[in-house]
């Protein structure tokens, strides 16, 4: 019975092909540094899950953002755990993604034929930093407020177009409810969408081209 169900699904989904292509593929012998990519993916998924949970109670408005975070931390059961994991997951993810990039650089894995994998990786690194930057404001506490004030001030120093960029980032000339809601939107919709699509491309390339091998002295 189970066998027939599997066959029925396999015929339509191509499970065997997926198994052969993804799981059963041969890859060069590599070391532990090569786990950083999957570790980044794992952290991204965890961030996604804890992030979705946080939106259950979080309110992206200056009136309530701080209070709703306090509520999550102090009154919701295990709210402190979910937020704690999201908070530390963000820090860890930046670290892991960065080291992943350094490893790729060290083993020259960005060279032929993996140039596109590298470029999509750079997009992912920047998007991760963007997630960190936009997420930082959301608790609407002193640290968040002032870090974002300074952070959005930085592009304002560019001659001519700088002030315009700052007001686009902030949704106005100073930090306000508009800043908070656009950061929130970017944090939970725009950047995750970019990251998801780019991870898809990244993984497709990794599977298609194979994991790079560790170069020996003749390479």
């Amino acid at each position: 019975m189970l066998r027939r169900l599997f066959q029925w699904l396999d015929e339509r989904l191509g499970l065997t092909t997926i198994h052969d292509v993804v799981l059963d593929r041969k890859v060069p012998k590599v070391n532990w540094w090569f786990t950083l990519g999957s570790a980044s993916l794992f952290l991204f998924l965890l961030q996604g899950i804890t992030g979705v949970f946080l939106t259950v109670y979080y309110v992206p408005s200056p009136d309530h953002a701080y209070d709703s975070v306090q509520y999550i931390m102090n009154e919701v059961r295990f709210g402190w755990l979910i937020r704690g994991m999201h908070h530390w997951g963000a820090n860890l993810m930046v670290l892991v993604v960065f080291i992943h990039m350094l490893r790729t650089f060290f083993y020259a894995a960005y060279k032929y034929p993996r140039e596109l994998t590298w470029i999509s990786g750079v997009v992912l690194l920047l998007a991760t930093l963007g997630m960190g930057f936009t997420g930082y404001l959301l608790p609407w506490n002193q640290r968040a407020y002032w870090a974002t004030t300074v952070g959005t001030e930085i592009p304002g120093t560019i001659p001519i177009i700088g002030p315009f960029i700052t007001s686009v980032l902030r949704g106005g000339s100073e930090l306000s409810a508009l800043t908070l809601s656009r950061f929130y939107s970017v944090h939970i919709w725009f950047l995750p969408a970019v990251i998801t699509v780019t991870i898809g491309l990244h993984l497709y390339l990794v599977i298609r081209l194979g994991i790079s091998h560790i170069p020996d002295e003749n390479d």
Binding site: I49, F53, E75, F78, L81
Partner: peptide, 15 residues
């Protein structure tokens, strides 16, 4: 480890 607290988290106001 995440799932059980998450259930409590979601049900919290009802509890």
């Amino acid at each position: 480890l995440v799932g059980l607290p998450a259930i409590g988290y979601l049900l919290s106001p009802a509890l």
